[in-house]
Design a protein around this nucleic acid. Structure first.
Lengths: 346, 346
DNA sequence: CTGAAAGCGCTTACAG
DNA sequence: CTGAAAGCGCTTACAG
């Protein structure tokens, strides 16, 4: 393996000078620089990153902790992370926890060994106290997830507001019995979306019937089974807001299996707007989250912190919008208004 | 920051001994070990991985290069990579090329700077010569992709055979005009699948009509448009084999848009078996690739090479199978046989 | 079982 | 503009 001292010797300079050339320092004469560059080329020298990492005490690497890379919602966010990291000369270490708390801790632990310069958590199941502790030791940004009461830099949408808007969309379409299939209540995002749902129901003076709220786990299967439960009620809903798109798809499948037509007999709105939403039938009306932008913003914010530039805002809230496709129907006869767009279709 | 020498001083031993304790060396007395461990605990010492990386000349990190993490096929493979890497104490650096050749080169380059111990390519657009060169410098395994004529360790399925089986399945179901929507011909996998398709057509003495082969790019859109083309032929096909599931879904959408029923009027078979296949309507008949296992095998093979254990086999071919769901129909009246299973449905 | 010492290959004040 | 020298924090033969 060719090392810097070999280059130095061949070019008749010191290692310091080779290092300066490599770093693009302006304090090197043109001739020296050219000579060094030529030797580097000739010897096919590549600097040893492990050595420079130790010396600079930075691996130019960010650890990204997420619950499940096969979840298309997170995959798109990760792409945002990756692109910005790459633009700024950093690498991304992938930490897929598979929703296991022990793995979450393990990945976070890496940051204490200086192997990574910063941490993005797109899942945060560990107690707030631990997160607080971690954030005191290493640059940390939360993406999508957030933590109540702590001033941790966060990038997300307004989940309460978005859930309220989704529910109101159904109510304003003329539905009086609107159900909600929630995410797991252990997750703050799920609780936020339930909160938004409740707000909308109360805002419109509808009955708040707890049997209309069923707790799912974000899978298609749980959407399916919870929809069956809802449809077996004495007074079943005519519309349902699912806390993510997969559960909405499951809900549609369940309705169809009973011969209930979507959207004619049942309106379904999802949350996230993953690619799947445009591929099912009917195409899914849903709340669009700017997944890629969330990823980009979060990484940009983190790198600003890592590089000592304090971010302008510590809590970034990106905007959502309702995308109207084919799984919902206006049963009131009145006009629809507000912050929503016609869905893009194939 | 507490460092090893601090621990050594506090425990009244040398750094060497602390290092031995940390490494679990048996050559440390019980009392010494306990004392050191206690001090480590008290001082909340974490070893500096950047330093040990340099000393051991290894970052315990594997670079994974893939074309697009938002593609569910690759996401699942990456999960296999991750899980095995983690089990064996390695980390995964994510390299999402977005199908850009320049990025592919850049990620691969990292391995020449000793920042990663090995490389898995799940995409390989760079010339064979370059791959050969890289593989001489760093442990390298190809996953899914492979390279003709080079003896590079590879994990994949038999793409020719699988494509032949998919096409034969349609033919044996009584179809005489079977079309193929291929992937981009620049990709060796696409060419393999075309080859398998041709073999099946010839094997069954059907007419080899080049208009029945349309080149797509693996997107839903290209499946849609190519299906429209095929359906506008004077003598349109009654069945189509798409080189991946997304294009198959696009093909179904196109057929439906013309009022052509799937599977009654047109049978469609896909390739890969991504989660989407079970969510569209009708559910997609497809060729199942063991994505997670491909990922696991590839990482296991790579780490064996990295750690100096030569892998038993250099070319691992995992088995595929045809999963029969609702998008194909037997129009012959005869029995179906062979290496296929009934599809799992919700 | 333990320690002193060398050294991994860089980068960076410091001095000239 | 350039170099000598120190040092990042570990690990590992070597010696005892």
């Amino acid at each position: 393996m060719v090392k810097m001292s070999d280059v130095a010797k061949a070019a008749n300079v010191s290692s310091a000078t080779v290092s300066r050339v490599l770093a693009g320092s302006p304090h090197v004469s043109k001739e020296t620089k050219e000579r060094v560059l030529r030797v580097i080329e000739e010897l096919n020298y590549k600097p040893n990153r492990l050595a420079s990492n130790l010396r600079r005490m930075s691996a130019k690497t960010i650890m990204v902790v997420l619950p499940d890379i096969t979840n298309p919602f997170f995959a798109k966010i990760v792409q945002g992370f990756e692109d910005v990291a790459h633009e700024r000369g950093y690498y991304v270490l992938l930490g897929d926890t598979g929703n296991r708390l022990s793995l979450e801790r393990e990945f976070i632990e890496l940051s204490r060994e200086r192997a990574v310069d910063g941490l993005i958590l797109a899942t945060a199941r560990i107690p707030n106290k631990e997160i607080q502790e971690v954030s005191e030791h290493v640059p940390l940004v939360l993406a999508c997830e957030y933590v109540d009461g702590l001033d941790i830099p966060t990038v997300s949408i307004d989940n309460v507001g978005a859930a309220r808007a989704a529910t109101e969309f159904l109510i304003e379409s003329g539905h009086r019995r609107v159900a909600h299939i929630s995410g797991p209540m252990a997750v703050v995002l799920s609780r936020d979306r339930v909160k938004g749902y409740r707000q909308a129901v109360q805002l419109h003076d509808l009955e708040l019937d707890d049997r209309l709220i069923q707790e799912g786990d974000f899978t298609v299967q749980s959407g399916y089974h919870n929809m069956l439960k809802l449809l077996s009620l004495d007074n079943p809903p005519t519309a349902v807001f699912a806390a993510n798109d997969e559960m909405a798809v499951g809900a549609i499948k369940a309705a169809k299996s009973l011969g209930i037509r979507v959207p004619e007999d049942l309106s379904v709105i999802g949350f996230d707007d993953i690619p799947l939403a445009m591929l099912v039938e009917p195409e899914l009306t849903t709340v669009h989250q700017p997944q890629y932008d969330i990823g980009r913003h979060a990484m940009r914010m983190l790198l600003d912190i890592v590089e000592g530039r304090a971010p302008r805002r510590r809590q970034v809230v990106l905007s959502h919008r309702i995308v109207v496709r084919g799984s919902t129907m206006d049963v009131s006869g009145s006009e629809q208004t507000g912050n929503r767009v016609e869905g893009v279709t194939l």
